[in-house]
Design a protein around this nucleic acid. Structure first.
Lengths: 151, 151
DNA sequence: TTATATTCAGACTTTTTTATCTGAATATAA
DNA sequence: TTATATTCAGATAAAAAAGTCTGAATATAA
């Protein structure tokens, strides 16, 4: 699996919010957990981290929950991935050499630079609103919610 | 980190062999472990797995060790990655939906297909010999050998 | 004010990945 | 044959990631 479960859960939750944000001020984490089949306490931590990364805001107490901090049209998937996988995930040397740089490139340096640009562009080139707009029926989105494959 | 340590160790070991294969019939794992600073027993398992994947051959006993099963010009990095990360690593749905397919695509399906093609092409588009040929001085290759960053 | 619904925070447990250890099998050379 | 150098195989240990639990803090509404 390319992205960690943590990150997949975060991405899905944020897309869920992008689809439902307009309904009310805050969406309870319990609702997201139920609909997307993500363990509640685990999701709570993940969303808390997205709060620290200024992607979500939250409110405690009755009628509380989480919401996107900005409109979905001003957020993108890369922000979520960076917050949950860490900033080095797609940015460090593909052969894992700490010292790799354009001045002292590894044997895949320029190749990886190009491939990475593809990936970064994919995740940052369109907004969460754009992505959510392609979720044709919410039914399909919700039905697909199992992260079960063991790889 | 994009690739697991297991996979990085395997890739580096295979590149080491591509650089030294011509010297003798077999290269002892201990030598690779020493030069590349990879834990010996861990490397042994990794290379054993590459043997099962028909990338390496091995010989026990004195003067034994491992060697590339085919010339480095007929092997590529993707073979190693598939053997060590598993076949699903770059091929399953980027949002982790088991049911995702071109008939029932997730919201990033076609985007991921394009980005993935970039990555697969990078890893399979040139041979291990090509990559090893860009390792300018072995000194630089060996010096860079620490997988220490915690991400 | 009190009951309820929620996030926040941190300790804990489980699972997976990474790494180590030990002994058996086997090939070579003296 | 014997000593030595090596991989093979499986058990174990350590570290990291994934997931759970509990209680505190806080906001709303009756």
């Amino acid at each position: 699996m390319f992205l960690s479960k943590r990150c997949l859960h975060g991405l899905r939750a944020v897309l869920y919010l992008a689809l439902h944000d307009s309904d009310r001020a805050f969406t309870p984490i319990q609702e997201i957990s139920d609909r997307l089949n993500i363990p509640f306490h685990f999701l709570t931590k993940i969303l808390h981290d997205l709060g620290k990364a200024d992607i979500l805001i939250s409110s405690r107490g009755a009628a509380g929950g989480v919401a996107l901090q900005r409109p979905a049209s001003e957020l993108n998937a890369l922000l979520v991935i960076d917050a949950l996988e860490g900033p080095h995930f797609l940015r460090s040397c593909v052969l894992g050499f700490d010292a790799c740089s354009s001045l002292a490139p590894c044997a895949l340096h320029s190749q990886w630079e190009a491939a990475r640009a593809c990936i970064l562009n994919m995740f940052s080139g369109e907004s969460l609103a754009d992505i959510a707009g392609r979720i044709e029926t919410e039914e399909a989105f919700l039905q697909a919610l199992r992260v079960e494959r063991k790889d």
